[in-house]
Design a binder for these strands. Structure first.
Lengths: 153, 153
DNA sequence: ATTTAACAAATTGCACACAATTTAATTGTA
DNA sequence: TACAATTAAATTGTGTGCAATTTGTTAAAT
């Protein structure tokens, strides 16, 4: 149990976990913005395509589960990717409720232009390789925990 | 140098640092949402108040630098906080360009209701205390690096 | 077979987030 | 002193992000 004076310490930015997490995510996305713009993608569109490049076609719902986005966000993003000519959106004949998302020829080819994108972090994130590995592991472990928590929202 | 086959490995979600960072930040903010709603705040408003609770009154610009937000985002957020009665927005007499942001009585008092908020993570982030400390350190170190990078955008 | 429940997307409304531009005030300089 | 450059906020336009609701389809129960 903390004393009252210590308790208010937790509200300092520097003592919070949530703040550097929030700020760091934003800054990293900002670094990705320019190189992504060159190949015609936003960050969210890039995340969507990474899933399709790795796993192939899947429903909007499955896609949303992988990247923690619901249809409210995903539907307009997918419509834009369709308009850009990178994905197809088709109802499954077997079940008209589900929208199957698949890569077009151009969407598949875009992967080759995207392989160099992750390197943009190398110059500007001042972490050693080991530190990056550690951070990735911890973030993934934390994500696992939140998955259960936010499931029933 | 990686071979071509290995190169495409970097685009897998599990191999990226940026994806768990992006997803984890969103999930953590989602956890904060409900308890914050109870005291009448959004996450961004909470971040703003944390700065004011810790450092006291300051200009919109200084505030924005601390939390990595520009006036485009901050101006409407501060107007809402003013409407809620938690902050004052006043032009400095010495320099009418700068908008001084200060806490109202209610804004100051809100801190006592907010001290319990950070604990919401305890139950749902499955990290040990040491892991949280490590993660916080690494995130802050990474943030330092990005600061220089995104300065001239 | 009809009704009900469950499900997947889409829609709506609100709140960021940020690049780019504009507005208003101040500073620096010829 | 004028006037250009700089600065701080505000504004504009686009793109998420999410809770809540709606729409359309399928499965389950009576």
């Amino acid at each position: 149990m903390l004393k009252s004076a210590d308790k208010s310490e937790v509200l300092k930015l520097g003592n919070q976990l949530c703040f550097p997490l929030y700020a760091c995510a934003k800054e990293v996305i900002k670094i990705y913005r320019k190189p992504l713009e060159k190949i015609g993608l936003t960050y969210t569109q890039y995340i969507v395509l990474m899933v399709l490049w790795e796993y192939g076609a899947m429903s909007e719902k499955s896609l949303g589960e992988k990247i923690y986005l619901d249809s409210g966000t995903l539907t307009p993003v997918l419509k834009k990717l369709e308009k850009s000519g990178f994905v197809r959106r088709e109802r499954l004949k077997a079940d008209e409720r589900v929208l199957q998302i698949s890569l077009t020829e151009n969407g598949s080819k875009l992967k080759e232009k995207a392989v160099d994108i992750p390197q943009v972090l190398d110059g500007c994130i001042h972490l050693t390789y080991d530190e990056m590995i550690t951070m990735k592991k911890l973030l993934n472990k934390a994500l696992e925990g939140t998955k259960e928590r936010n499931k029933n929202d």
